[in-house]
Computed example of a mutant assay.
Amino acid sequence: MDLAVRAAQLRSERRPFVEAIVVRAQPPTSARTGDRALVLADGTIEGFVGGRCTESSVRDVARQVLERGESMLLRVLPGGATEFPDAPGATIAVNPCMSGGATEIFLQPQMPAILLAVSGTSPIAEAVADFARRVDYAVEPVRGTTVPADAAVVIVASHGGDEAGVIRAALDAGAGYIGLVASRVRGAAVLDEVDPTTDERARIHTPAGLDIGARTAAEIGLSIVADVVRVARSGGLARPSGAGGRAGTGGHVEVPRPVDPAPGAAVDPVCGMTVTITESTPHLTVDGTTMWFCCPGCRQRYQKDRVA
């Protein structure tokens, strides 16, 4: 599998994942320095960074990395090992089931770029799109009143345009930022037509943009993108989780998207490890209760102890 090609595909599909690379390996671990893998939001691992026990730790930490949006260094050690001393910024996972060796794995989140949907064709709309790309945002046009899911939306008012319809579609699609480029009088008239609730009104910004005294199209575009960045950095814009989405066309329209449901977690009853539950996680159902294990070895040990 070409992981670079696969990573590019996931980015094009706007699916979050974690890139994991082995930066240090101590024999007899099966991983080698430079081994890589991609960890999807549902816990699927594509590539290789170690055996079953290591994979369990990588899945658990990758889930935290996606939740926090921050990189993390993972030290995977066998029980009682002290070869890799603790250090700030590192997370240690002690795997009693490991037969020896140790690894350090760097996990880096790869989150979809913030999506900015622009409605209208004018120098201001072009400036907004240009500045958005300069800060590494993805940009899509709004076609009619169809608003992409997971998008911030900027609407440039024009004669005969359906600004109210686009705003309503954006609200229904859950847009965290909706900017209307219009005069105060025109903006007030559009809002009267939309008739938003109090919570919805808090997401609508008109006149759009920070007050920097902007006059030219470029300056206005800069002020609008700066305001979107402000809202994004304050946590007002959620990035796609991979769990699907909607787009609005005056109501709700389902948009086909890859679904990566967030995995659950359980504790291995043998070694005490936290295990991320996926389709391939070893498990055993006893008296109607499902037990999850870090590896087949722990499952076999549990079965053997029950027989004994």
Rank of each mutant, 00 (worst) to 15 (best):
V5F: 01
R6V: 03
A7L: 06
A7W: 02
L10A: 01
R11M: 03
S12A: 08
F17R: 03
F17H: 03
V23M: 04
R24H: 09
A25Y: 04
P27L: 10
A31R: 11
V39A: 00
A41Q: 00
D42K: 13
G43S: 10
T44D: 13
E46H: 12
E46S: 10
F48S: 11
G51T: 08
R52M: 11
C53Y: 00
T54A: 05
V58N: 00
R63K: 12
V65D: 05
L66E: 00
E67H: 02
E67Y: 00
E70T: 02
L73S: 10
L73I: 14
P78L: 06
P78S: 13
G79A: 15
G79Q: 15
A81N: 09
T82V: 15
T82N: 14
P85N: 14
P88K: 03
P88L: 09
T91L: 03
A93N: 01
M98Y: 05
G100T: 13
G100M: 15
G101R: 03
E104C: 13
P109R: 03
Q110T: 04
M111C: 05
P112T: 01
A113W: 00
I114A: 10
L115E: 04
L115N: 04
A117T: 13
A117I: 13
A117C: 12
T121V: 12
S122I: 10
A127D: 03
A129P: 06
D130N: 05
A132P: 02
A132I: 02
R133V: 11
D136W: 04
P141F: 11
P148K: 06
P148M: 02
A149M: 08
D150C: 08
A152D: 03
A152M: 01
V154L: 08
I155P: 01
A157T: 02
S158T: 07
I167Q: 05
A170M: 07
L171H: 02
D172S: 12
D172N: 15
G176Y: 08
Y177E: 14
I178F: 13
A189W: 09
V190R: 05
E193V: 09
V194K: 03
V194Q: 08
D195P: 01
P196M: 05
T197Y: 07
T198Q: 15
E200Y: 05
A202L: 09
I204A: 12
H205C: 08
T206G: 07
T206E: 00
G209Q: 04
G213L: 04
R215P: 02
A217Q: 10
S223P: 06
S223K: 09
V225N: 05
D227I: 13
A238V: 10
S241Q: 11
R246A: 11
R246Q: 09
G248W: 01
G248K: 00
H252G: 06
V253F: 15
V253Q: 07
V255F: 14
V255L: 15
P256K: 09
V259F: 14
D260F: 15
A262V: 06
P269H: 06
C271Q: 10
G272P: 04
M273I: 07
M273Y: 07
T278N: 11
E279A: 15
G288V: 08
M291G: 04
W292P: 02
G297V: 03
C298Y: 06
R299T: 10
Q300V: 06
Q303N: 14
R306Y: 05
V307W: 11
